Structures are given as C-alpha cells and as structure tokens.
Simulated assay, not measured.
Amino acid sequence: MKIFLKIFISLVLLISFLQASSLNVKAIQQNFYNNVIIKPLYAKYRKKSLVDKALKQRAKKFRIYNNYWKRAKKHLFKKSKYLASSQFLTLVDLSKQVLIVVLWDNEVKDFYPVGFDFISTGNIEREKEVTNGEDHYFKTPAGFFSIKSGWRSEGEMYRDNITMPYGKKDNYVFYFGEQKSIRYNTFDKNNTKITDPKKWKIINGKLKFAMHAHISGNSLGHPQSHGCIRMSSDLNVYLDNNLVFFKHLYDGKKWTHPYKKPPNNPTNYSLAGEFMLVLDKI
C-alpha cells in the first residue's frame, strides 16, 4: 500500500500541492486513491503487474500537473465567496472528461485536489441516433451549480442485461435542477429525420441536469451521455459516503431527511459540501 501511495502522490496529485493545510489532506487523498482507483483496478485485474500497468496508462491519459492545477485554482477562487467553511466541492473539466474532487480549506483560504476520475458527459453528435419520442442529446452545461435534490437508484437494468442507467441499487443520483443547454435539431417541420448533418441546426433547450453512476459497455473518459454526468459506481459511493453534496442534509452528524436513505458509511461530516463547478476547458 505504501508503494501505491507513492505512485498516487507522484503521478496524480504531486506533493507540492499540499503546502500548509489545516486539514489532513494526505489522509483524505489516500482514502480517495484506495477506494476510487486501486480497489476497482484490483477487482478488475487481480494481479499487481496488471494494476501497475493500468495506473501508468491512466497517468498518460490525464494527470493533475502543477500548471494545470494553477489554472484550475484561478477558476475555483472566483467562487470562493460562496464557501463559508472548509468543505468538499467538485470540478469538472469537459475537455478532459474528468471530475476532480476538491477540498477547500477555509482557514488557509486555499484549494487542494483530493483525486480525479474519468467521467462521461453529453455528446450532442449522438442526436443523429434519436427517433421521434426519444430523449435528446444535450451539451453538458458549464457553470457553477449547487445540488437541488436527489434520489437513490433502484438498480434498474435495460433489456440488454448490461446497462444500468443509474448504476447499482442505492447509488445516489445527484440532481442540479433544470438547466439551459443546447442540442441539434435533426427533424424538419414534418418531424421527418434530417439525414444530412449540414442541415442540422443548433437550438436552445433545457436539460434536467444530474450526475449519476452508469454501468454499460461504454467506457468512461469519452462524451456519451444525453447531457448528464456519468461516473463509476466507486466514485458515486465516495461522493455519497464523504457527503460531498450533502451539506443541506446533515445537522452535525444527524441525517435530516425523513424519506431519503442516508449514506451507508458517512464520514467527514465537517467537510460536507454542495457545489460543482463545470468548465468547458481548464
């Protein structure tokens, strides 16, 4: 485990990010690394050599370099006025198809990267697949969002016996409300499909914007969704148990919602958050 932690720090987060924090950032980072990255890799490959290879491939695809994090923090600091206490928040880079869990230390007034994972966001080019009556493919909206509500997945599965659109049973669906977005109009005035992409028009619309787990044959790290943010079940469980979006549902260590199920293993109560910053590019 010590070897894996060294790889984590050197390839993913870089120790220089830590500086002087009043919080135990390293322990929080290790928890993310163990549960979101290493645990699912061992479940998939089972051999250390294969896990090490997967980690190297992952690092080649994306790392949080110093210069990248400096640019990211410029965007985050513009929203720091909304953060009255130390807390988690998330940062989404649509161009890289990654979600970064971030920690705001209110005492030292600085942001720290906890870890990242690959996601899948809206692919408006897939509008060509849509037939009358089906859901449209929207661009995932950029902006600063606070969670509005949410629910737990029923674990429903499509007829292909592979796809679980909201992940496993009890994965939490984080809902950010109805948001403005854009999509292609691929139908003419007679509701006939337009087959020539040159004749498609970009139109404005509204997306019921959520972030949720998704299990299918499509890999994360590429735009695939109808506009929502898809993530792994492991990242979903981490966000759930670490209360990354549950500030409004906890009073100290007490879960306050009478009908929604609380996380199975809640922790970091004092760092509960509510915000997500989505950027087209960092």
Results as ranks from 00 to 15, higher is better:
Met1His: 14
Leu5Met: 11
Ile7Ala: 09
Val12Leu: 08
Leu14His: 13
Lys26Val: 12
Ile28Gln: 01
Asn31Ala: 03
Asn35His: 04
Lys39Trp: 01
Leu41Ser: 02
Leu41Ile: 13
Leu41Trp: 00
Ser49Asp: 09
Lys53His: 12
Ala54Leu: 04
Leu55Cys: 05
Lys56Leu: 14
Lys56Tyr: 14
Gln57Leu: 15
Lys60Gly: 13
Lys60Pro: 03
Lys60Ile: 10
Lys61Asp: 15
Arg63Ile: 11
Asn66Ile: 13
Tyr68Ala: 07
Phe77Gln: 11
Lys78Val: 07
Lys81Ile: 12
Leu91Met: 05
Asp93Gly: 06
Ile100Trp: 01
Asp105Ala: 12
Lys109Asp: 08
Pro113Glu: 02
Val114Thr: 09
Thr121Met: 04
Thr121Tyr: 09
Gly122Tyr: 04
Glu129Lys: 07
Thr131Trp: 10
Asn132Cys: 15
Asp135Ser: 14
Phe145Pro: 02
Phe145Tyr: 05
Ser146Glu: 13
Ser146Cys: 14
Lys148Asp: 11
Trp151Glu: 07
Trp151Ile: 10
Ser153Leu: 04
Asp160Ala: 10
Thr163Trp: 04
Met164Lys: 07
Phe174Ile: 04
Tyr175Ser: 12
Gly177Phe: 00
Glu178Ile: 14
Ile182Ala: 06
Tyr184Leu: 11
Lys189Asp: 13
Asn190Asp: 10
Thr192Trp: 08
Thr195Leu: 08
Asp196Thr: 05
Pro197Glu: 15
Pro197Trp: 15
Pro197Val: 15
Gly205His: 02
Phe209Gly: 09
His214Ala: 06
Gly217Phe: 09
Asn218Lys: 14
Gly221Phe: 10
Ser225Asp: 03
Ser225Thr: 03
Gly227Trp: 02
Ile229Gln: 00
Met231Asp: 01
Tyr238Trp: 07
Asp240Ala: 03
Asn241Pro: 07
Asn241Ile: 04
Asn242Met: 07
Val244Asp: 00
Phe245Gln: 02
Lys247Arg: 13
His248Tyr: 07
Tyr250Thr: 08
Tyr250Asp: 01
Lys253Asn: 05
Trp255Leu: 06
Pro263Val: 08
Pro266His: 01
Ala272Phe: 02
Leu277Thr: 14
